[in-house]
Nucleic acid binder design. Sequence first.
DNA 1: GACAATTGATTACAACCGTAGTCAATTCTA
DNA 2: TAGAATTGACTACGGTTGTAATCAATTGTC
Lengths: 126, 126
Amino acid sequence: MPDAPKISDSEWEVMKALWDHEPMTAVEVLARLPHDQWKQKTVNTFLVRLETKGVITSKRAGRANVYRTFYTEKECRRFEGSQFLSKVFRGQVAPMMLDFIENEELSESDIDMIKKLLDDRGGSNG
Amino acid sequence: MPDAPKISDSEWEVMKALWDHEPMTAVEVLARLPHDQWKQKTVNTFLVRLETKGVITSKRAGRANVYRTFYTEKECRRFEGSQFLSKVFRGQVAPMMLDFIENEELSESDIDMIKKLLDDRGGSNG
DNA sequence: GACAATTGATTACAACCGTAGTCAATTCTA
DNA sequence: TAGAATTGACTACGGTTGTAATCAATTGTC
């Protein structure tokens, strides 16, 4: 990612819909969002803004624009993740992980999976 | 936290300074921020806004206001954390942890610490 | 007590955000 | 082909954010 643009909270919702089912027209994107929370025109505005920001692209197909993401969800997560980490946890990964372990729901299999990953990264308690 | 208010990126910087050394006047807060990136008046504005939002409080002491946080850093982290989790990782903790483990720097002792925490939470691979 | 220095209160202002409405072009449909 | 329906383009508008400047009150200083 050549310095990723800022994606706002609502824009993220649109992005997630698009990632789930590319490419889509504006109408199709709306259909994949919580129906009572979004108006067509609002979705349209966000799609235009996202394209202006360079996060998605569009191509005319018949009477509708068809949108497609430019960055993968993984790329955007990585970017947002490091922003979040430095803003909220002063860049310290371990304290952050500990907080999430404390506060959020983790199933046994989640825990096992994470431990396995950690083993591959090193440490002596695995 | 009775539904925590939104704290913007820059406001977070001010908050972190305050948490590190409460209570402080606006001048003292500035002194604890990267000096070439902040003007006194800007810091003042953020302090006023944060108080309006109910995130900090102030009390007059002589000619200066003395500010003090109303929420702990832990509380705010928890709130921001769950926002981030649902926005970027669709509320799924494990994938998020895995991403951070992949992408961020973790020392051996970090890894050990995290594993220990996970052991206390359950799982079978500890 | 008069002037200077300090500091808060008020005001400014553009960009971004959430949330759409209106206008206009295109395209079915009868 | 004329009207209806669809859909993008453009416009709107108040709230938030980043970034401060100006105005005014308070407080030292001589």
